[in-house]
């Protein structure tokens, strides 16, 4: 297997250019899918036999929760690649994941609390799923905090990468918490071995929203990573050339 593509992505000018080209291919589909998913979830999907209309919170809670895990995994794997192969772009991608991942986690926890009150009867419970999700937030915050405390970018990359790698252990704990321990939180409805336990009329808007969030993550990660790459290499020759090209492109 040739690793040429791998190293090409590690080149900042190439990454900056290619990320700018493909970002819209994530951004616009995300917007379209989001509108379809919202209409499907709020209007087309029927009420639930048990939770009535309260269950509709699932369409914003579950995609945010999935994306929190996806973002953390992407961040930790990028950080590990950056650490092992000393690729700066990988660290820039990890940085791009951290801020938005914390956002997904907060949305997941907040919408979960709002869902918990009318169904469980409590805003909060020290349930294994909720506590492990809270840990995920701490790892995101720890990553960002640790970087903020170290001035030198290379040293910040390495130290924060180790923290991100340690936190990856929490990802399967979040996923399997509801299987391993008695919990108030329900067991998975979609990602289960025996197939989804949610009617198709309610499932398709959920899958659409999850896909919309995934595309949104792709878009925002690329935009943030581009900003991070520019910030790191400001003053370098390739940045000067890239900006010149962009200015020429805007004029024509």
């Amino acid at each position: 297997m040739s690793w040429a593509w791998f190293h090409r992505f590690g080149s900042p000018p190439y990454f900056y250019w290619v990320a700018g080209k493909i970002a819209p291919w994530f951004g616009w589909p995300s917007l379209v899918l989001l509108l379809i998913g919202l209409y499907g979830g709020l209007v087309l999907a029927p009420v639930d036999y048990f939770q009535s209309d309260a269950y509709r919170i699932i369409y914003v809670h579950v995609p945010a929760s999935w994306l929190a895990l996806l973002t953390y995994s992407t961040m930790a794997i990028s950080a590990a690649i950056g650490l092992i192969w000393r690729i700066k772009i990988a660290h820039a991608v990890a940085v791009a994941c951290a801020g938005v991942g914390a956002g997904f986690t907060i949305v997941s926890l907040a919408t979960g609390m709002i869902w918990g009150k009318p169904t469980w009867g409590a805003w909060w419970a020290w349930d294994p799923r909720i506590v492990s999700q809270l840990f995920l937030l701490f790892f995101f915050a720890g990553y960002t905090g640790l970087r903020a405390a170290i001035d030198d970018t290379d040293r910040a990359d390495r130290a924060s990468a180790v923290l991100a790698i340690v936190g990856i252990v929490n990802v399967p704990i979040v996923r399997y918490s509801v299987d391993w321990w008695n919990s108030l939180h329900q067991a998975p409805s979609v990602m289960r071995a025996d197939g989804p336990t949610i009617s198709w009329s309610m499932l398709w808007p959920l899958l659409t929203m999850a896909l919309a969030y995934t595309f949104y993550f792709g878009w925002i990660m690329l935009v943030r990573a581009r900003a991070e790459v520019l910030r790191r290499d400001r003053g370098s020759n390739w940045v000067r050339e890239a900006l010149t090209n962009e200015a020429a492109g805007a004029r024509s």
Partner: peptide, 12 residues
């Protein structure tokens, strides 16, 4: 409950 949850998610 439903509308604040959607407001938080879409606002974010």
């Amino acid at each position: 409950f439903v509308w604040p949850a959607y407001a938080i998610a879409l606002g974010a």
